[in-house]
């Protein structure tokens, strides 16, 4: 059964949080793939994955970051920032 965008976003948020604990970074594309793997093709499609990521970012729960490539992370202090 199709998942709601909120359910997918919650799942993705959990993935990002767990990854960050072991200092691993996930790309937006990885998150969609993980969601499809977890919920199946009937549960999630790529478009829904995209909407869930947008939801995550607009709710302020996740931010885009860049380290040679783009990732989705929990908001944190900029490593390079000066106090």
């Amino acid at each position: 059964m199709a998942k709601t965008i909120e359910e997918i976003a919650d799942f993705m948020f959990k993935q990002v949080s767990e990854a960050q604990e072991v200092s691993k970074k996930l790309k937006p594309g990885d998150l969609t793939k993980l969601a499809i793997k977890a919920f199946g093709d009937e549960g999630v499609d790529k478009k829904m994955g995209k909407m869930a990521i947008k939801e995550l970012v607009l709710s302020g729960k996740c931010v885009y970051t860049y380290f040679g490539g783009s990732f989705l992370e929990l908001p944190h202090r900029e490593g390079a920032a000066n106090d």
């Binding site: 200092s23 691993k24 970074k25 380290f67 040679g68 490593g79």
Partner: peptide, 13 residues
């Protein structure tokens, strides 16, 4: 290094 970076990413780079 481990605080700032993801090790497999560095190897792959």
């Amino acid at each position: 290094l481990n605080k700032l970076c993801e090790i497999p990413n560095i190897s792959a780079s």
